[in-house]
Design a protein around this nucleic acid. Structure first.
Lengths: 205, 205
DNA sequence: TGCAAATTTAACCATTTAGTTAAACTATTT
DNA sequence: AAATAGTTTAACTAAATGGTTAAATTTGCA
């Protein structure tokens, strides 16, 4: 067994394991023992690096959020025509989710767990969407788009992409009689379906 | 204090309280003591009627599901033109959620908690959407609609309606700088925004 | 080699919580 | 009035779990 390769690698190993376990089980369902096991260490050492479950959770959770949100916003900030941007976002985001299918459930569960703390952690930076809205309005004025606010479009987009992952157990059961293969196929189709749906909704041709 | 008015009313009082608490806290977060308090009784009596938390939870949770799902499907089964139906659904469903804003978070959390059990409880009735799909295809053939499968339309619809409720803490923070009033306004706007969005996506005019 | 940090071992503490129990009490019914 | 079901009280058990502790051991490094 390779040991004592420096505190850093152990700490990151813990963070990785915690990441896995928290995403799988959520904050409430996760067990410190399980995180320790997954990291190949013991509970004492786990608490040697992170003195509480809350601290560990926060580092993992807000680490994910503060990495994910700017990434999402950045996707909206390119120079391309808005519809092309939207398609790029759908593709990018959906392919990310297909590789991390249980992540959305985790995020939407935990942001509702303690909204107070959430706003403490994230209050500092209020994002600025005026630029994006300007660009939309611009294309509306040119007759390329039907009018819509960024917030509504954002909600529509995220909702359509994310819901089949969050609702999978029920949707697969009810819409596809429990057939997992068909559901995977359904998920694969959505990228283009959503892109088309949005394009058709936003343009009059 | 009115007492001993028959086991029935106490039992339903418990179920109502459990409903409240479970929706607020989820299965994991709910405490039997809290349910007892909310029902105005004590833990002993609570276990007199429901011998375990699991049993109580299941009665509440699957009670909600088996009431909600047929209702949703029924909305799709009218005789009206499809687009009118969709608008009715958006209105109906969204106004229901505005009265029960934390319900979706609860449902989507719990269906992911134990998918095995979910499919045991719900496997019996596989819903039949062929009729609905036929009606869509019919209108497509007449040139009134662009082609889409019921499953995709359903996911789009539910996703757009539900996501602002599930994602509220984060969305309110990031899209509206934490302003709750503006977010409520946003929610009120969505009914017509979603209806328009879907109509525009599904028709070429 | 020797020191300091990293790691293990193993026992332990404190708290929370679902669930139990038994005895007493109250209302309802017959 | 007696029996029965509903209800309370209060103490208890058992298990899970986050967190601690202290001593021993290992490892990296100066």
């Amino acid at each position: 067994m390779i040991k004592a390769m420096g505190s850093d690698s152990t700490k990151t190993k813990i963070l990785q394991s915690a990441h896995q376990v928290f995403i799988r089980k959520g904050m409430d369902g996760a067990r410190m023992q399980e995180i320790a096991d997954e990291a190949g260490i013991n509970k004492a050492l786990l608490h040697y690096y992170f003195h509480s479950k809350d601290q560990l959770f926060n580092e993992v959770f807000y680490g994910i959020l503060s990495q994910m949100i700017p990434g999402l916003v950045a996707l909206f900030s390119g120079e391309k025509p808005f519809l092309e941007k939207v398609e790029a976002i759908v593709t990018e985001y959906d392919s990310y989710l297909s590789r991390n299918p249980i992540l959305p459930q985790f995020i939407f569960r935990e942001i509702n767990r303690d909204p107070e703390q959430l706003s403490k952690f994230m209050s500092d930076q209020g994002l600025d969407f005026d630029r994006i809205q300007e660009r939309i309005d611009n294309e509306v004025a040119q007759g390329h788009l039907r009018p819509i606010t960024f917030q509504h479009l954002f909600a529509n987009l995220i909702g359509m992409i994310v819901i089949p992952y969050i609702g999978r157990p029920l949707f697969q059961l009810k819409l596809f009689k429990g057939d997992a293969e068909k559901y995977d196929q359904f998920l694969r189709e959505r990228r283009v379906v959503i892109s088309n749906f949005i394009r058709q909704a936003l343009t009059k041709d």
